[in-house]
Amino acid sequence: MDSLVVLVLCLSCLLLLSLWRQSSGRGKLPPGPTPLPVIGNILQIGIKDISKSLTNLSKVYGPVFTLYFGLKPIVVLHGYEAVKEALIDLGEEFSGRGIFPLAERANRGFGIVFSNGKKWKEIRRFSLMTLRNFGMGKRSIEDRVQEEARCLVEELRKTKASPCDPTFILGCAPCNVICSIIFHKRFDYKDQQFLNLMEKLNENIKILSSPWIQICNNFSPIIDYFPGTHNKLLKNVAFMKSYILEKVKEHQESMDMNNPQDFIDCFLMKMEKEKHNQPSEFTIESLENTAVDLFGAGTETTSTTLRYALLLLLKHPEVTAKVQEEIERVIGRNRSPCMQDRSHMPYTDAVVHEVQRYIDLLPTSLPHAVTCDIKFRNYLIPKGTTILISLTSVLHDNKEFPNPEMFDPHHFLDEGGNFKKSKYFMPFSAGKRICVGEALAGMELFLFLTSILQNFNLKSLVDPKNLDTTPVVNGFASVPPFYQLCFIPV
């Protein structure tokens, strides 16, 4: 009986604490739906499609509103004006990374994606500088992407125009580009180590996009005490870190300090320079996690976009025909596509942009946080508050993009057929937390897609009208449904 009384008292205290925290903070924060004790607004949000729920709530509470995930307040920004004001106009104040408990377990605050403060700034600055020195957006990395595009075309030829699921092959190409940047090595598509790495990356994007992960991140005790797919994700990350550590040891034994070959060499050189400046942010643990982040951000996002792009091109054969006509006119058949071609191919450029806009790969991006107490639109948001960005509300804005739910390359073309930029184009987020590999991803999408369409016609196994382009999961990332196609050599 005594234990029951204690339990009831504990629960009562928890409920009172929950109510007090919510009521004391709500006077400062933007308005929002009334949260339930302990669980907050979790029942009012469709976990399978958070973005749709945010759109519905914005119609009631406006472009800036507050939700509670458990006891934790989260300020939501919906629509271009609110997102721009926060991420661009007040970029420094909104540059923090929001709480992501599962990532905390995986990387302990290291790396480039989930770190904060001085650690994040130094690692991000170093990573950007190193990638630029190796030619991100310049010639040397373009050579690597072109080489991988040629290998991709050869792998597709091996399908002999038979029906195939493109998931694996389209994942190999961007993964190999990242391998060449980090390890100075590309792998054969049949290499077992490479296959294991690909498998872990593919599993992780599916797990991260599941409703279960949303629950884990908002009720963090689940991570330590409950079984579930989150444990598989943590094991996959541990596998990748151990693999990278092996490569780091190989580099330490063979590195030429006067001739760095890749990202690992550059990081080890930085560690050597910083060894007298303790404590340094440049450690082996930081290198492991930064490399894992580059793999995660640079492989599955690009391969998922490529997979979605081919599905949309199957669905819209008239678009595919126009792209192939432009390829034939500008590039021809006797040389590989290059980035200089893009400025002469406005329709193809528009298609690449429209694919990214339409699929809305990361509907709410990753959570941000404010780095200080900030007054925002007459609300006071306390330091450390998590900020949720609705990228969907920007990419699918119906004023900027008429009929935003329709796939239409003319969203990025003017009346004369010239490519038209849009400030609403934010597939990689915006501001200080914009994806480090934005330029690389854009290069890969253009070169891989043009190389495929230069060499193959795409054949659907069903009537294009019957192809479903609805994402199968739409949590962290929008993942396309399973499909097969035939690559018919031109």
Rank of each mutant, 00 (worst) to 15 (best):
G117I: 03
E250T: 06
R150N: 10
E438S: 15
E272S: 13
C216D: 06
G332C: 06
S254G: 10
K121I: 07
E438R: 12
Y225V: 10
P30V: 02
G137F: 09
V394Y: 03
S390K: 07
K247V: 07
I434C: 11
G298E: 00
N41Y: 02
L128F: 09
V8P: 14
K59I: 09
E354S: 01
I99H: 15
A369G: 07
N398V: 11
K315T: 08
T386L: 08
L152I: 05
K273F: 07
T159C: 04
I213L: 15
T167S: 11
L208R: 10
K28R: 14
G46P: 14
L313D: 00
L208V: 12
F476Y: 06
L467A: 02
P166F: 00
E93K: 05
H368L: 06
P279N: 15
K270M: 14
P489T: 02
T302D: 00
L380C: 11
E253I: 15
S23Y: 14
L71T: 11
Y61P: 01
P427L: 03
A103K: 09
N418L: 08
T55M: 14
W212C: 07
R335M: 05
Q44S: 12
I50Y: 12
F376C: 09
F295A: 04
N218M: 15
L4F: 14
S162T: 12
S115R: 04
Q252S: 08
C266K: 11
A161Y: 03
A86S: 09
N334S: 14
V5I: 15
Q146A: 09
D89Y: 08
K121V: 07
C486V: 06
K232C: 05
G62C: 02
F487I: 00
K375D: 05
T392E: 12
D373L: 01
K273T: 12
L17T: 13
L170I: 07
L131Q: 06
L77R: 00
A86V: 08
A291V: 15
K200F: 05
D468A: 10
R150L: 09
S451F: 11
R333G: 09
I50W: 14
L71C: 13
T469F: 05
L461G: 06
Q192A: 13
E85T: 08
D293G: 04
F487V: 00
F263H: 03
A238G: 09
N236T: 03
I213K: 13
I99W: 15
N455C: 09
Q146K: 13
T159W: 05
F100E: 14
L19P: 13
L156Y: 00
S336M: 14
H276E: 12
M271S: 09
Y347L: 05
K72H: 12
V75P: 02
S127F: 06
L467Y: 03
A238Q: 13
L54A: 08
V355H: 01
L131I: 09
F226W: 09
M271G: 08
P464K: 05
T385N: 04
F428S: 04
L195S: 06
V113L: 15
C435I: 00
F239G: 09
L362Y: 03
L388D: 01
S220C: 15
L131P: 05
L67C: 10
C172D: 00
L87Q: 07
H410M: 13
M443S: 04
T283A: 07
W212R: 08
S127N: 13
D262S: 14
G40L: 03
P363Y: 02
S23I: 14
L197M: 08
K423Y: 07
G96V: 07
V323L: 12
V473T: 13
M255F: 13
K121L: 08
N277P: 07
C372V: 10
G437L: 04
K270Y: 07
V76Y: 07
C216E: 13
F239S: 12
L453M: 07
K432T: 06
F226Y: 06
P402F: 08
L54N: 04
C266W: 15
E285C: 05
N107P: 09
K160E: 12
T469P: 09
Q252M: 12
R342K: 15
E81I: 06
L447I: 15
T469V: 13
F65K: 02
A86E: 03
D262T: 05
S53E: 11
P471Q: 05
Y61A: 02
Q324A: 06
L440S: 01
E148T: 00
R132N: 07
I374H: 07
L485M: 11
L208P: 03
V330E: 15
V83S: 07
M257L: 13
N107M: 11
Y243N: 04
K121A: 10
N418R: 12
L90E: 13
N277Q: 11
N133M: 11
V323H: 01
P73S: 03
